[in-house]
């Protein structure tokens, strides 16, 4: 009995000292959402913590989960690959703003032994995923690749079995270039596919492609660049064949974008642009005073957002195989951020 009481006493003491510690440390902020930018967020949040002492925790639970968590107010910020529609925004308890953080792209990885520089068009990719082109030596593919002898091999298109922002961006592009794809499959995070095999997540898609001859699949560029899987050049809107790299991906976002940055940049008209590129965003409430949040916490949240669009953070993007935002987008993002308030007063010092 004595021992039991002693144990209880110790437990209380331990929990008390924990609370003291918490009071002494600086604010910590938490976020959840998209998995696509996770490697970038890991390094840039760590750099932010190193320079400010503010702890940032981030859970890669998927864009949908991130939006749900922000709506339930259990995180300070959400993250998403597909911007919120007006309908989704209306379901949130108060106004939400989007802060773009970096650029990514979707590359067409393939497995054709001995073939390095495959060229494809959006129309061909759409027809492959519709099950209309089934052989690699199909005339349509051969026409785009005059210098290459394509094998008579079945094409196995691979798609993501899990709901994913990657699928959303990919099908957004295919729906733009192929009316038939738009009508039969459409655009969404998970869809009903007429042809192909499914795998869960970028790693499984990449694993499947590298193991099986004749496969083609769409992979997040950050993953494809890291594992060095062969990927195709795509014909863009201007008729040029473009390989995905940092310049061609950033070029897709160049030009005028809406003031709230909510836009898809697939099938860009820029001649230098790779056609399947996308933003990824962080989401915060425009009015930061809610749920008894302290002003210092609100300030920490905005500081983090400001850090994300700073040159230091943007420089980190390429180190982990993402692409930096172009200058016009950064200006827009700063404007969005300066509209964020605490009790009606802007939080950004400038």
């Amino acid at each position: 009995m004595k021992q039991f009481l002693l144990f209880v006493c110790m437990l209380t003491l331990v929990s008390c000292s924990n609370q003291d510690e918490k009071r002494l440390t600086k604010d910590s902020i938490s976020g959840a959402g998209a998995t696509f930018p996770l490697p970038f967020y890991d390094v840039t949040f760590k750099a932010f913590t190193d320079s400010t002492g503010i702890q940032v925790t981030y859970g890669g639970i998927g864009s949908g989960g991130g939006i749900r968590s922000l709506r339930d107010q259990i995180v300070d910020f959400g993250a998403t690959d597909a911007f919120m529609s007006d309908k989704d925004m209306a379901k949130m308890p108060r106004e939400v703003v989007h802060i773009p953080t970096c650029l990514g792209a979707i590359v067409m990885g393939y497995n054709l032994p001995g073939i390095q520089d495959l060229r494809l068009t959006g129309q061909i990719v759409a027809d492959i995923y519709l099950g209309k082109i089934t052989k690699w030596n199909d005339d349509l593919i051969q026409q785009e690749n005059p210098g290459i002898k394509l094998p008579e091999l079945n094409i196995y298109p691979v798609y993501r079995s899990d709901g994913s922002g990657t699928t959303y961006v990919f099908t957004d592009y295919l729906s733009k270039v192929s009316p038939e794809f738009n009508q039969k499959v459409g655009c969404g995070k998970s869809l009903k596919w007429p042809a192909g095999i499914a795998a869960k997540g970028n790693p499984a898609i990449a694993g499947l492609i590298s193991q099986t001859k004749g496969t083609i699949g769409y992979i997040g560029s950050e993953y494809a660049f890291a594992v060095k899987i062969p990927y195709a050049s795509l014909k863009n809107k201007s008729g040029l064949y473009i390989k995905p790299d940092n310049e061609s991906i950033s070029a897709a976002a160049a030009g005028d974008i809406p003031a709230d940055t909510r836009t898809m940049i697939t099938d860009s008209a820029n001649p230098q642009a790779y056609p399947i590129a996308c933003f990824t965003w962080l989401l915060i409430y425009k009015e930061q005073s809610y749920n008894n949040r302290s002003e210092s916490k609100a300030r920490a949240t905005v500081d983090l957002m400001y850090w994300m669009i700073s040159p230091e953070s943007q420089r980190l993007t390429t180190e982990v195989n993402y692409s930096p935002l172009p200058e016009e987008t950064l200006i827009r993002a700063r404007q969005v951020l300066s509209s964020v308030t605490y009790n009606g007063r802007p939080l950004l010092k400038q």
């Binding site: 639970i61 998927g62 989960g65 939006i67 079995s161 899990d162 709901g163 998970s190």
Partner: peptide
Amino acid sequence: IANQFGESD
């Protein structure tokens, strides 16, 4: 459930 839970609502 494992495949689709993350991005559904």
